[in-house]
């Protein structure tokens, strides 16, 4: 579904992705962890070309993302993206937030889109918040609306960029719960997170990134019990002790 072939990216002189090789199969849940600045956010942002890459090939759902001629709007409609800061549209209600793209991009009739929006918002536990504006919702609720916004496009892939990092601790679980449910349904997901409990429980594979390199990637049992690289061990010892 997603394939990185020796992908490089630079921000000016800064080499942020150094030859990434990675395949993610349909239905797979991949958790990416690593220290801040390791390039993990950049990695998933290249998948829908929020960040263009400079070298290598990146194939997503059969389309060449690395090719500047590839029309991206069509591919982006197939990829849900959830941001750390939610990025809900503040001038729209929850329902309007989730129906905008189905109406405008999928050309779905408004009534149909609203029925879909209500159904998906109910699925993330927000049936009673349809007509609230983002500012009237808690962080956890906003992030669930953001996930619903992605799901309303019936995406083939969902990308999560530190979805719980901006949340108060008591709200983290309501968001993770929605993500667990998604994973159980077989959604292809890449999740950048430090929630190692989530990784252990839900991920098919866990990847560790540092300094723009994919250091290690393994199924969670193996990844946590027998990390191969010294850097991975060091990182895990830091984040698992507290």
């Amino acid at each position: 579904m997603i394939e990185f072939r020796d992908v490089h990216k630079w921000f000016g002189d800064l080499h942020v992705l150094k030859g990434i090789r990675l395949r993610v199969a349909a239905g797979e849940v991949l958790v990416v962890c690593g220290p801040s600045g390791s390039g993990k956010s950049t990695l998933i942002r290249t998948i829908n070309r929020l960040e263009p890459i400079q070298k290598g090939e990146l194939i997503v759902d059969g389309m060449k993302v690395h090719d500047p001629r590839t029309p991206m709007t069509k591919l982006r409609a197939e990829i849900g993206f959830v941001f750390q800061q939610f990025n809900l549209y503040p001038h729209m209600t929850a329902l309007e937030n989730v129906t905008l793209a189905p109406i405008k991009v999928r050309r779905m009739p408004r009534r149909e889109a609203e029925a879909l929006g209500k159904e998906v918002l109910a699925k993330v536990g927000l049936a009673d918040k349809l007509h609230q504006y983002p500012a009237q919702l808690s962080g956890g609720q906003q992030q669930r609306v953001a996930i619903a916004r992605g799901l309303c496009m019936h995406p083939k892939i969902m990308l999560f960029d530190e979805p719980t990092s901006a949340l108060d601790p008591e709200m983290i679980n309501e968001v993770l719960e929605v993500m667990r449910a998604l994973a159980r349904e077989g959604m292809t997901m890449i999740v950048v997170t430090h929630e190692m409990g989530f990784a252990r429980e839900v991920a098919h594979r866990v990847a560790f990134m540092d300094y723009g390199e994919l250091i290690e990637i393994a199924p969670p049992e193996e990844f946590f019990a027998r990390p191969q690289s010294e850097r991975t061990r060091l990182f895990l010892s830091k984040i698992l002790t507290h």
């Binding site: 829908n48 929020l50 709007t73 990829i79 993206f81 941001f83 793209a101 991009v105």
Partner: peptide
Amino acid sequence: GQREAAVSSGLNGYQQLRH
């Protein structure tokens, strides 16, 4: 982030601006 969210959901340039 507003533009990024709009871009990510597949809206084209005009739709991002307009909506």
